[in-house]
Design a protein around this nucleic acid. Structure first.
Ligand SMILES: [Zn+2]
Ligand SMILES: [Zn+2]
Ligand SMILES: [Zn+2]
Ligand SMILES: [Zn+2]
Lengths: 160, 160
DNA sequence: TGGGTTATGTTATGATATAACGATAAATAT
DNA sequence: ATATTTATCGTTATATCATAACATAACCCA
């Protein structure tokens, strides 16, 4: 079978980026929230790469684009994007990544390549279902999850 | 059915703690590695509670027990314990917890109560299997995982 | 246009983590 | 036993990640 285009396979990335922005606009409009210039720029910065960026990395680029250059500038924009499900925090990396399907599937499962730093958000209903089942067996009520795998993407695995 | 005794249910905790230390000794002896005084004390500090402790929290207690009081003292001991599978890092909390079954089941799945900070390590073969399957479908080779759920333990849920 | 609300810039500080180096203790090899 | 090597520990310094607090500016809606 043909592999789906994802972070691990070359693809027309302009498409990811443009579509990401467009969806964000729609989503926020429907929620009557504002995609202000900093937020928009922060999202574009994240969308520009299929990898997670540290807050200070985002900050540098925001500053280069004419915005403030103090940490809260980046953290606030990122916090907003995360709250709205337009970005996620990758806990293993203390870093942030744009969400690749902001409308559905909102508890992300990440695959992080330690070779090239590529980050893929994989649909994983079943992983969440299994986690919910395990939690339920312990009488635990799940509110948020972090599910992340570190390893090698196909290309880096082949190279190794 | 009767709930298993775990972090979320009252139990003879002395047992957890004593057994944890004893297993650690056996495991390290079999690997010809040393459970030095700082390492032993760090493990006891983690074993004392069914919750995750920040490195600086551990450091305070190490210092109070007569060890050095600079960050590397704690970080080194914790790093060793984590490498040996005797403790885990809880990424959502940037904190560390003793492993509750150091011999088996070595990719932990954590349930973190946001009400009382209790932390349970739950056996979750199926969660890992599902994650491995999802990764495999993307051609990704999994090396390490972080699987964590934040929510409410039975007691806190009942209280809410 | 006034007045509440939301968002941004800025200063300062807090929290988490590691690099580097010298001193000490333990294991190993004569 | 003593020398040599290796692992561990203490300490200083610094890097990295994150937020509190407050002033200013933009937006929104009477
Ligand atoms: Zn997502
Ligand atoms: Zn890769
Ligand atoms: Zn216990
Ligand atoms: Zn609880």
């Amino acid at each position: 079978m043909t592999p789906k285009p994802d972070a691990f396979h070359s693809h027309d990335h302009r498409h990811c980026s443009d579509q990401g922005l467009q969806r964000a606009e729609e989503i926020l409009q429907s929620r009557k929230l504002r995609l202000t210039p900093v937020r928009r720029q922060a999202l574009q910065i994240l969308l520009a790469e299929h990898r997670a960026l540290g807050a200070y990395e985002v900050l540098e680029r925001l500053a280069a684009a004419g915005f403030g250059n103090q940490p809260p500038v980046a953290y606030r924009a990122l916090e907003f994007l995360v709250e709205q499900g337009l970005a996620h925090k990758v806990r293993r990396l203390n870093a942030f990544a744009a969400c690749m399907h902001p409308e559905t599937d909102h508890a992300p499962v990440f695959l992080i390549c330690r070779g090239c730093n590529a980050l893929a958000e994989t649909p994983a209903e079943q992983v969440r279902a299994a986690l919910n089942a395990a939690a339920h067996a312990a009488g635990f009520t799940v509110e948020r999850t972090s599910i992340e795998a570190l390893g090698l993407c196909p290309a880096c695995e082949a190279a190794a």
